[in-house]
């Protein structure tokens, strides 16, 4: 009989303490958890590994891709001896006025594990729709350039590059 009140007293205190701990954890958990916000270089934040068809579907859905081989100049070597550095320049014929310009240029290489390579967001202030970059190509592959115009039209051009030595670290 002597212990009953003290036992109930402890229970109440423990309960309150437990509630307080749960409350704190609930607040601090998402803020302080080390894995709560994955860093931008972690696998989850990278472009997914997929086939190029899946990339095209993910980026453009079922929107029609027009043949842009006359409007897009895809400048890159026919044979790249070293896949680690393949210079690619994409130039799209466009007046580049605020009313009619190229909004995005995507560079996609079919056989890379992560086919989506680079996405450029352009503005009319650029004067011409020209972007260039050095790519890493794992093996002989088609490289596609997709241009999204300001009216939503999608144009695509592609060309094959022969790669003698792959550039994705084996």
């Amino acid at each position: 009989m002597e212990r009953t009140p003290s036992a109930s007293h402890i229970t109440r205190r423990t309960l309150l303490r437990a509630l307080a701990v749960v409350g704190l954890a609930g607040v601090s958990g998402p803020l302080l958890g080390p894995d709560a916000v994955p860093a931008q270089g972690n696998l989850g934040a990278l472009q997914p590994e997929e086939k190029v068809e899946a990339t095209m579907k993910r980026l453009f859905g079922s929107r029609p891709l027009k043949d842009g081989s006359s409007a897009i100049k895809l400048d890159m070597p026919l044979i790249a001896e070293n896949g680690a550095v393949v210079p690619v320049t994409v130039e799209v014929q466009s007046p580049m006025t605020p009313a009619d310009y190229v909004k995005h240029i995507y560079i996609i290489s079919d056989k890379n594990r992560r086919p989506m390579n680079a996405k450029f967001t352009l503005t009319a202030a650029m004067g011409t729709a020209l972007v260039g970059a050095n790519l890493r190509l794992g093996e002989t592959t088609d490289v596609r350039a997709v241009a999204e115009l300001s009216d939503g039209t999608l144009l695509m051009a592609k060309r094959e590059v022969k790669v003698t030595v792959g550039g994705c670290g084996g």
């Binding site: 990278l46 992560r114 390579n117 996405k119 352009l122 503005t123 650029m126 790519l135 890493r136 190509l137």
Partner: peptide, 14 residues
């Protein structure tokens, strides 16, 4: 004024 932005991946060379 921002005139060009690019999202790049590891498929861009060293």
């Amino acid at each position: 004024r921002e005139i060009l932005a690019a999202e790049t991946t590891q498929s861009v060379s060293e």
